[in-house]
Computed example of a mutant assay.
Amino acid sequence: MFGLYGILDIIFWLLSVAAFVLSGWALVHALRIPASAFPAAGKQTKPLWLIILGLATLFTFAAAINYLGMGMGLPNIFTIAAVIAAGIYLADVKPAVNGYRGGGNQGPYGPW
């Protein structure tokens, strides 16, 4: 039914979609955090992270649509760098700035 290349194409497409979801998740999180939280946590500024994560989402989206016949070719060094940037944000910056969410009343288990 599927040859070896068909199965590998499906695997790489799933990896590309997962990379796009990872980058998108990081970008949405960065958009929701106030700009003052980044310097307060000792991290780079919010506009810089939005540029980095926006480009990461763009490159991973291009890699994901490549398998539908319209793309820039196989995942390349930019796609790998995009996944690394989103991973750094989610592993290092996200936990540091999570405590700075603005909002109303704070209960013992978070906002309510």
Rank of each mutant, 00 (worst) to 15 (best):
residue 90 L to A: 11
residue 73 G to F: 06
residue 5 Y to E: 13
residue 23 S to W: 00
residue 79 T to V: 10
residue 18 A to C: 05
residue 100 Y to T: 03
residue 38 F to S: 12
residue 54 G to D: 02
residue 5 Y to K: 15
residue 98 N to R: 15
residue 49 W to I: 06
residue 76 N to W: 04
residue 79 T to L: 02
residue 1 M to H: 13
residue 64 A to Q: 05
residue 18 A to S: 12
residue 66 N to A: 02
residue 33 I to M: 10
residue 20 F to L: 15
residue 81 A to C: 00
residue 28 V to E: 13
residue 62 A to D: 02
residue 87 G to P: 01
residue 50 L to N: 04
residue 77 I to E: 10
residue 100 Y to F: 14
residue 88 I to N: 10
residue 110 G to M: 10
residue 79 T to E: 06
residue 79 T to Q: 00
residue 18 A to H: 06
residue 105 N to G: 12
residue 15 L to H: 01
residue 34 P to G: 06
residue 48 L to Q: 13
residue 67 Y to C: 00
residue 11 I to T: 07
residue 95 P to S: 09
residue 12 F to V: 09
residue 80 I to V: 14
residue 50 L to G: 08
residue 45 T to P: 11
residue 101 R to P: 01
residue 26 A to E: 05
residue 32 R to G: 14
residue 25 W to S: 14
residue 65 I to K: 09
residue 46 K to D: 05
residue 66 N to W: 04
residue 86 A to H: 01
residue 6 G to V: 02
residue 82 A to C: 07
residue 57 T to P: 05
residue 86 A to L: 03
residue 90 L to D: 11
residue 41 A to E: 05
residue 102 G to K: 15
residue 15 L to G: 12
residue 30 A to Q: 09
residue 74 L to R: 06
residue 59 F to Y: 03
residue 106 Q to L: 15
residue 60 T to G: 02
residue 23 S to H: 00
residue 90 L to S: 13
residue 103 G to Q: 08
residue 50 L to F: 05
residue 48 L to H: 12
residue 77 I to F: 12
residue 93 V to Y: 09
residue 63 A to Q: 01
residue 63 A to E: 00
residue 43 K to Y: 08
residue 95 P to I: 07
residue 109 Y to R: 15
residue 99 G to N: 06
residue 20 F to P: 00
residue 108 P to N: 13
residue 9 D to M: 06
residue 78 F to R: 08
residue 96 A to L: 10
residue 3 G to S: 08
residue 17 V to K: 08
residue 65 I to L: 12
residue 11 I to H: 05
residue 72 M to W: 12
residue 20 F to R: 11
residue 78 F to I: 12
residue 95 P to M: 10
residue 78 F to S: 10
residue 62 A to V: 00
residue 103 G to A: 08
residue 111 P to R: 15
residue 17 V to Y: 04
residue 4 L to S: 11
residue 32 R to A: 14
residue 26 A to W: 04
residue 81 A to Q: 03
residue 20 F to S: 12
residue 10 I to D: 01
residue 40 A to R: 09
residue 68 L to E: 00
residue 18 A to P: 03
residue 53 L to T: 05
